[in-house]
Simulated scan of single mutants.
Amino acid sequence: MVDDTDLRHLGRAVELAARALESGDEPFGSVLVGADGAVLFEDHNHVAGGDRTQHPEFAIARWSTTRMTIAERAAATVYTSGEHCPMCSAAHGWAGLGRIVYASSSAQLVSWLEEWGVPPAPVRALPVGEIVPGAVVEGPVDSLSEEVRGLQARFHGRS
């Protein structure tokens, strides 16, 4: 169940996505929060430079494995503007991170891109649960998914 604390952190992930867009990058943002509620790490996409692996969820996985214990990672929550792609899902699973809460789903993004005539990504969109069986995943969150849709529309020149 997504509560007010979740919405606050998820809102920050959407703010980071907007920051990415403002810097000329794809609008995705993520926040790692420890079991005690402390924000441990936050980032946004950095793929505009040509390295398509520079996703914030992947950065969170890498950061967490060198700075958190296995138990701390399992108790943490990743908040993200968009559901993890397969690469980031795998990194999340390998790092042993806990719960994921996302504003918009991969299925929503695929639908929006099809609607706008944007060619599909080179990697098939799959739900996190298909990559990381047993992952605790919550989303999409309707109150924020429309905001994410707007960011994606601006990025793809559809607003």
Rank of each mutant, 00 (worst) to 15 (best):
T65N: 02
T66V: 03
I70D: 14
E72G: 07
R73E: 06
R73G: 06
A74W: 01
A74E: 10
A75G: 05
T77N: 01
V78C: 07
Y79P: 07
S81K: 05
E83M: 04
E83Y: 06
H84G: 00
P86C: 08
M87L: 14
A90E: 15
A90D: 13
A90Q: 15
H92M: 07
W94T: 13
W94P: 00
G96I: 03
G96K: 10
L97A: 03
L97D: 03
L97N: 10
R99G: 08
I100A: 04
V101T: 08
Y102P: 01
Y102D: 00
A103W: 11
A103N: 11
S104Q: 15
S104A: 15
S105G: 10
S106F: 04
A107P: 09
L109N: 12
L109M: 14
V110K: 13
S111D: 15
W116D: 13
P122M: 10
V123Q: 12
V123N: 02
A125K: 07
L126N: 02
V128M: 01
V128D: 07
G129A: 10
E130S: 13
E130R: 13
P133R: 12
P133S: 05
G134K: 07
A135Q: 06
V136W: 01
V136M: 11
V137H: 08
V137I: 12
E138I: 01
E138H: 15
G139N: 12
G139M: 10
G139L: 11
V141W: 09
V141Y: 11
L144I: 03
E146C: 06
V148R: 09
V148S: 09
G150F: 01
